[in-house]
Design a protein around this nucleic acid. Structure first.
Lengths: 163, 163
DNA sequence: CTACAGTAGTTGTAGCAACAACCAATCGAG
DNA sequence: CTCGATTGGTTGTTGCTACAACTACTGTAG
């Protein structure tokens, strides 16, 4: 019987706010993208990852890793994106088990069109209310939490254009 | 044609980390609760809100507000919780359109049993990696973001025992 | 060269959430 | 008091995600 630890009032307060953000933020991003571009956030993120990749091409497995999805989930989503003509599949020459997902020109156009609105929402809801100090603190604190949630840093790594 | 604004490198970096946390944290909480208590995070949160309410009773509408759910979603969930005997419904005397959701003794036992494990996960994944300064910064930054996401402070308000 | 383990991906199914349509009770204006 | 609008809640449908089973290919050990 270990005494169950509890949170201090300050920790509880911070925790409640974090959980509120975690609950509310996805919905906000989701509805903006759905309304303005007809994409779910996951679809947008998938297309964005492809758009940054060399040749706009990625193996299913590594695309799944970058989007933090199971292969099964990604497969279903790529099927839907393929039906809409935003992505196409291609058998991989080197390893015939593998499949490459490739962003089509229509897909590229779609991400390019969706990005400004999405970025605008991010700015409005998260960045603009923060000072430069806040942003630095956010970066540091989230970094610490990610050390636990994502120790192998699958979901990080810098880039330039999207998200 | 307004020049689309973009994020600075520092902002982008912080943003990516926040989005990673937002993606990863729910899954972590979800699986711990599911594994140890057979509850989804939403179910746990619903029961927790009821357990803190006067008489462990809440109108469907205000419970929906506190859990950030639509009435439709809450209705389905309460139906499932009712079938498991954790919650019961009762017609409201004052307003006969309204329904009260009430935590049963079995429901109370369930939350009490689930809470330590849940809190342990919160401590391990979010609180323990942070210093006291980090916690204060987290509180401040999330507070600023919530001003935008939840201006009417529906999802805040202090309390003692849960979550 | 075959047998077996591991890797890459797809597909079927079950459960939950979003949306919309719906019913019932209440409120408010004339 | 009664007709329309609003509020409170439930139910049916659709779409997406998780999980599990399955196919197909690769590589390696005997």
């Amino acid at each position: 019987m270990t005494e169950p630890r509890w949170l201090t009032p300050e920790q509880l307060c911070a925790w409640k706010k974090l959980i509120a953000v975690v609950e509310l933020l996805p919905g906000t991003l989701e509805s903006q993208l759905q309304r303005d571009s007809g994409l779910s956030h996951f679809e947008y993120f998938t297309l964005a990852m492809l758009s940054e990749a060399p040749d706009r091409t990625l193996r299913m497995t590594s695309l799944a890793a970058q989007t933090n999805a199971t292969l099964a989930r990604l497969s279903h989503v790529v099927t839907r994106l393929e039906k809409r003509g935003l992505v196409r599949r291609e058998a991989c020459a080197e390893d015939r088990r593998a499949t490459n997902a490739i962003l089509t020109p229509a897909g590229w156009t779609t991400v390019e069109a969706a990005a400004p609105g999405h970025v605008g929402t991010v700015l409005a809801t998260v960045i603009d209310p923060l000072t430069a100090t806040d942003v630095a603190d956010l970066d540091r604190v989230m970094g610490r939490i990610l050390e636990v949630l994502d120790p192998s840093h699958v979901m990080v790594g810098a880039s330039s254009t999207d998200d």
